[in-house]
Design a protein around this nucleic acid. Structure first.
Length: 848
RNA sequence: GCCCGAGUGGCGGAAUGGUAGACGCAGGGGAUUCAAAAUCCCCCGGUAGCAAUACCGUGUGGGUUCGAGUCCCACCUCGGGCACCA
């Protein structure tokens, strides 16, 4: 009898699938379609275990759906633009393009042996001019439909390298290479008008029934709809009034100062004539642009010397402060502070000696605020101090509503709906991205490129030896003719955010070689993505941008109405994490070490080569820049793809993060070998044994359980049932014929997870054709029903005994049997039960 | 700081409010073997007990319920996101 040998089985069946073009997606009007998509990878050059997990999940679904009669689209491509290619060019002197395409080839070579049912004929990379040219066409159409515009926005500026930094390149407020303190600087940039869709993107979340609740919640919070009041404070010097937006207008009587952003027009005006204010505003612009950095920075403020009058009392004057925590991007860039009921305002007021006035008290414990702001839930009733709208006891919600009504009635304010969602800035001052197809003409201004001139290709003769954007430095690339007047003009040198590339690739897969972004018939047939699978880290940005893009593509005629929500179902897998091993170099910058470069000894962890002790940061997202990526190739080389696939599907629930360990791959491999052995034995076996319905019952239960597991994305439970079913087949006394039937079904049930072994077993047992194309076995529901059930008997919620009864026995009889059991008698110890709860088919609980 | 999750044996984990620990890994014992590998069988949360069994046990503390890993409240720890990492 031959032994299980993945290295011969796997290439054999991969060739069989390829020869039969089993996974090439074709539009088949006779069949329902199913579009499975996993988030496409960044071509880092090596697949890691997170990819294996992600693509195997998608593959399980794709293969399963295929056997259920769907015409399946399961494509693969490359999210190929982005910073790592430029970093590599800077580090090694190569070219981002060469580096990227070499990585793609390498990664593809690593992916092929996994046996994923991908339609490689649709492959593309976002850095292919063929792809990004169509993206430029989309941009031009968006421009024509008023979905893109230019405005100023802040970037991280490295004043030493004179370059824009990504947030990732800012470490503790300093540039990663120069170490210089980063500043916020304004540039004119392109923006997508995603905020115009705030309400729609929020409302539509309710209909995304097959999206995880948490993702919808995160997106809803990100969009951040709030109802509040807009009004203006009159300035005592008669200057332009200061417009504010507040979500807590009910606390207006507790106002202690008006705060404005350092980027507020008034702050700029004051800074122009007051060096002290100018210096403070400059100070406020120090540090990175992330919300995290701004929120956690020390709160600082400066009195402008200006005052405003309170809208309800002309004699009440409030000072105007500039504060570093007020964002110009949100609301009006100005607020009023109510320290008694907002912790940040309170900390600020205590720091600068500003007044604190209580506006309401707790009903049961009316204490004036000291150093902890009183912030009850808005739904809680509180006692109001002298509320202008005549409230005494009311909730925050009621008070907000009353205040807005009052302000509107008296004409000094207006109710306003505000969204936190900002427009999407897409300009990047970098080379390795899709060029923004516009031209700057002295006469005509900013003019879109003509579509017939697309793609606007990146020049290849560029260098990365100096910081900054090589497109800016290129001697000739910028020069062009104005598409409008034909006179000499200059190209835009900014490229697009790589999120743009990934916001429509799913649509492009439906017609990857088309000379327009999409083709109506293909989009109509294949869209939407029926099952989208990817990391939870993309819960907000990528998915929200894609939802916006789908709408914009519908408006510009590139996608049908039904595709405004492009992903019917979403599954977010957990991340594969691994410890990070970190040391610091002589300049205090972090250095990350590969797992295989460190060793544990003497209760510490050290770099093998230098003996330097490393800091171990436990379980963090695998990330190329942190060098904590684990390589699955060793497992594949040792045990084969099916073992790797089986193992990653069995080791943990897919939505959960897993700390990677390879122990257990051995066990998975043993199991597959056991299945193979069993199949071989059955294939050769003589028909002894007697007929036994138990095996068939177990078989149908297993079919059901495996289906439930796959459909509910609980692959680990499907696999647990397959283990159990293997034990059943191994031990059954049933006839060999029945065992053969069971084993063929086993091959089918395993085929989504371990397709190569499944084909081998299938053919060994005389299965017809390829198991990849065989119809999924049908569950015989009548065999699932059990005649007798085992009921646990509890006394006061503790299990004391059990009884086995016919499943339709009536309650009274069950109660009688339950009370008579030894366990219950012992636990009752002569006491009379007060009550007996019988849940038919489930449990009996005796209350004593 | 803000938003969203997760926490169950030595480990990965299972469990429509109804027998906590299915299934697997590791470990222990045995069979087979000249010996080993491979394979097969048994045991495997803690404490006490020869055992039957009892008590404890799902991050911590409360609560709801006949019954809570599951629902509610508060907290702790870890992870993700925070708009230029992808």
């Amino acid at each position: 009898m031959s032994r299980y040998d993945a290295s011969t089985i796997e290439p054999k069946w991969q060739k069989a699938w390829e020869d039969a073009e089993v996974f090439t997606a074709t539009r088949d009007p006779a069949k329902p379609k199913f579009y499975v998509l996993e988030m496409f990878p960044y071509p880092s050059g090596r697949i890691h275990i997170g990819h294996v997990r992600n693509y195997t999940m998608g593959d399980v679904v794709a293969r399963y759906k295929k056997t259920q009669g769907f015409s399946v689209l399961h494509p693969m491509g490359w999210d190929a633009f982005g910073m790592p290619a430029e970093n590599a060019a800077m580090a090694t002197g190569g070219h981002p393009k060469t580096w990227t395409y070499a990585n793609i080839e390498e990664m593809k070579a690593q992916m092929k042996p996994m046996g994923w049912s991908l339609d490689w004929t649709r492959e593309f990379a976002t850095c292919d001019p063929e792809y990004y040219g169509q993206q430029q066409a989309l941009f031009i159409d968006f421009l024509a439909h008023d979905l893109v515009y230019r405005k100023n926005a802040v970037v991280n500026w490295d004043p030493v390298d004179m370059t824009v930094l990504a947030n990732e390149q800012v470490i503790d407020g300093k540039g990663w290479r120069s170490g210089a303190e980063v500043e916020r600087r304004e540039l004119t940039q392109w923006f997508f008008k995603i905020s115009d869709f705030s309400e729609e993107l929020l409302d539509a979340l309710d209909d995304l029934k097959d999206w995880p609740e948490k993702v919808r919640l995160m997106q809803a919070n990100w969009i951040g709809k709030s109802q509040g009041l807009r009004f203006a404070f009159e300035r005592t010097d008669g200057g332009e009034p200061i417009e504010v937006y507040t979500t807590r207008p009910d606390t207006l009587m507790g106002a202690s100062f008006v705060g404005i952003s350092a980027d507020h027009p008034l702050a700029r005006e004051l800074a122009a004539n007051n060096p002290e204010i100018a210096a403070f505003c400059e100070e406020c612009r120090k540090g990175g642009t992330t919300e995290e950095e701004i929120e956690t920075a020390e709160k600082k403020g400066m009195d402008t010397g200006l005052t405003v009058t309170h809208p309800l009392d002309p004699n009440w004057e409030l000072p105007v402060w500039i504060a570093n925590f007020i964002l110009m991007d949100y609301g009006t860039g100005a607020i009023f502070a109510c320290p008694a009921h907002d912790q940040r305002d309170l900390d600020f007021s205590r720091k600068y000696g500003l007044p604190v006035r209580d506006t309401f008290f707790s009903l049961n414990d009316p204490q004036p605020v000291e150093n902890e702001a009183f912030v009850p839930p808005k739904s809680e009733k509180v006692k109001w101090v002298d509320h202008f709208a005549g409230l005494d006891e009311a909730t925050g919600e009621e008070a907000i509503e009353a205040t807005i009504r009052f302000a509107e009635d008296h004409g000094w304010g207006k109710g306003h709906t505000q969204y936190r969602l900002r427009d999407w800035g897409l300009s990047r001052q970098r080379y390795w991205g899709c060029p923004i197809p516009v031209v700057h003409c002295d006469a005509c201004g900013v003019v879109p490129e003509k579509k017939e001139n697309l793609p606007i290709e990146l020049p290849e003769d560029v260098s990365f030896d100096t910081p900054g954007n090589p497109l800016d430095r290129h001697p000739t690339w910028r020069d062009c003719a104005c598409p409008s007047c034909g006179k000499p003009a200059q190209r835009e040198t900014d490229t697009m955010d790589t999120f743009v590339d990934s916001s429509w690739y799913f649509a492009r897969f439906t017609a990857p070689r088309a000379t327009t972004p999409t083709v109506a018939e293909d989009a109509e047939y294949w869209m939407n993505v029926d099952q989208y699978i990817g990391g939870i880290e993309h819960a907000i940005l990528h998915l929200l941008y894609s939802r916006f893009f789908a709408r914009a593509m519908h408006i510009t005629g590139h996608l049908p109405e039904k595709s405004k929500e492009p992903f019917n179902a979403l599954f977010t897998q957990g991340m594969v994490t691994h410890a990070i091993y970190k040391t610091t170099d002589k300049d205090g910058r972090p250095v990350y070490h590969y797992p295989e470069a460190v060793e544990e000894r003497d209760g510490g962890t050290f770099v093998k080569e230098t003996g330097e002790q490393v800091e171990v940061i436990p379980s963090a997202k695998m990330s190329k820049s942190k060098n904590n990526v684990v390589d699955p190739l060793a497992i594949i080389a040792e045990y084969g793809a099916d073992t790797a696939r089986w193992f990653v599907m069995s080791d943990s629930p897919p939505e959960r993060d897993v700390e990677w360990t390879a122990s257990g791959a051995e066990g998975a491999s043993k199991h597959l070998a056991r299945v193979y052995r069993l199949a071989a034995e059955i294939a050769e076996g003589a028909d002894t044994g007697s007929d036994d319905e138990t095996l068939l019952r177990e078989m149908h239960k297993t079919i059901k359980a495996v289906e439930d597991g796959i459909e509910g994305f609980a692959f680990n439970t499907s696999i647990a049932k397959l283990y159990a079913f293997t034990n059943v087949i191994a031990k059954t006394k049933a006839t060999n014929d029945t065992r053969k039937t069971a084993m063929r079904v086993m091959a089918q049930l395993m085929s989504p997870m371990t397709p190569h072994l499944a084909e081998e077993v299938w053919s060994m047992l005389g299965g017809e054709g390829l198991v990849a194309e065989a119809d999924w076995p049908k569950v015989n529901e009548s065999l699932l029903v059990e005649d007798t059930v085992t009921l646990p008997i509890q006394v006061n919620g503790k299990r004391r005994d059990e009884i086995s009864v016919p499943k339709d026995m009536d309650k009274a009889e069950i109660e009688k049997l339950a009370l008579a059991t030894d366990g219950v008698q012992r636990a009752l110890d002569g006491a009379t039960p007060k009550k007996v709860i019988v849940v038919p088919g489930r449990i009996v609980n005796v209350v004593a």
